[in-house]
Amino acid sequence: MLPAFLADLASLVFPQTCLACAESLLRGEDHICTLCRAQLPYTDYHKLSAPQNPLARRFWGKVPLQHTLSYLRFLRRGRVQHLLHQLKYQGQREVGLVLGRWYGAELTTQGLQPGFDLIVPVPLHPRKLAKRGFNQSDTFAEGLSESLQVPWSATALRRLEHTDSQTRKNRFQRWQNVATVFEVAEPHTIIGQHVLVVDDVLTTGATLEACAVALLDAGCRAVSIATIACAEH
């Protein structure tokens, strides 16, 4: 670690900027400035029981989930959209890591940490993974893992098909698009376990639902989900 005066000098010559607002970071700020962190649109869904959690209601009658969690609200042209764009398309992996660490600390404070046995990110198809270079959900899983002290696996779940973009599909079309594309690649890692499945954004929930079904069918004891952000339903 650099001495404080060298760190200050380096920040003057090579200033780091906030990944949400592009303003210069102060010493001690971690990729996102204090002001942006304070103004992020938090959901606080982890503080709500299932009947009061509007996100949980999206999955009622579809798949049984232990916890339905999302850190932030996705608002168009807002800080969260900008952060996710930095993560997915600008290669800023630190966005997922930092938000995962912060959310993991929140979940630990709420007493949810002991319930999870394994964190599994929604996988990309190998073709898309090769094109993008990394899976943005892996970074969120890694950050959560650090704070929750729960192992994570990028290989437990596998995507079998390269599906079309979900962007312009309705909920039924999204479900048809992903209903059979996931399988458990390492059953021994998930049998009898409570698995936390994580992704970047939840819209209709079709992708996470398909992952949860595959995991439960393969012998999971329970499945929960968590995303960086969720879109309004």
Rank of each mutant, 00 (worst) to 15 (best):
M1G: 14
L2E: 11
P3A: 08
A4N: 13
L6M: 15
A7G: 14
D8W: 12
L9Q: 06
A10M: 12
P15I: 04
T17S: 13
C21N: 09
E23G: 12
L25G: 02
L26N: 15
G28L: 11
E29M: 05
D30S: 12
D30I: 10
I32Q: 04
C33A: 09
L35W: 12
R37P: 01
R37T: 10
A38F: 10
L40I: 08
P41Q: 10
D44W: 15
Y45I: 07
L48C: 07
P51R: 05
Q52P: 07
N53R: 08
N53A: 11
P54F: 07
A56Y: 09
G61R: 11
G61L: 12
K62P: 07
T68V: 13
T68S: 15
L69I: 07
L72C: 07
L72N: 01
F74Q: 01
G78Q: 10
R79E: 14
L83C: 11
Q86A: 15
Q86G: 14
K88F: 10
K88E: 10
Y89K: 10
Q90M: 14
Q92S: 11
Q92Y: 04
Q92T: 08
E94C: 11
V95P: 05
G96M: 04
L97S: 05
L99N: 05
R101S: 06
W102V: 08
L107M: 13
L107T: 03
T108V: 04
Q110P: 07
G111W: 10
L112K: 06
Q113H: 12
P114L: 09
F116D: 05
D117Y: 05
L118C: 01
I119V: 10
I119N: 03
P121K: 01
P121C: 05
P121E: 06
L124R: 01
L124T: 01
P126M: 05
K128Y: 01
L129W: 06
L129V: 03
K131S: 13
R132L: 05
N135F: 00
D138L: 06
D138R: 00
T139Q: 12
E142R: 12
L144C: 00
E146G: 03
S147Y: 05
Q149R: 15
Q149G: 07
P151H: 08
P151F: 09
W152T: 00
S153T: 02
A154N: 11
L157W: 04
L157K: 00
R158C: 10
L160V: 08
K169E: 02
N170A: 03
R171L: 11
R171Q: 15
F172E: 14
W175L: 09
Q176R: 13
N177Y: 04
T180P: 04
F182E: 04
E183C: 10
E183T: 12
V184C: 08
A185C: 06
H188D: 14
H188F: 10
T189H: 10
I190K: 05
G192L: 02
Q193Y: 00
Q193A: 11
Q193M: 10
V197W: 02
V198W: 04
D200G: 02
V201P: 08
L202P: 01
L202W: 02
G205E: 04
L208G: 00
A210R: 00
C211R: 03
A212Y: 04
A214Y: 01
L215Y: 03
L216T: 06
D217E: 14
A218N: 01
T227M: 03
T227C: 11
T227L: 03
A229L: 07
A231F: 07
H233P: 15
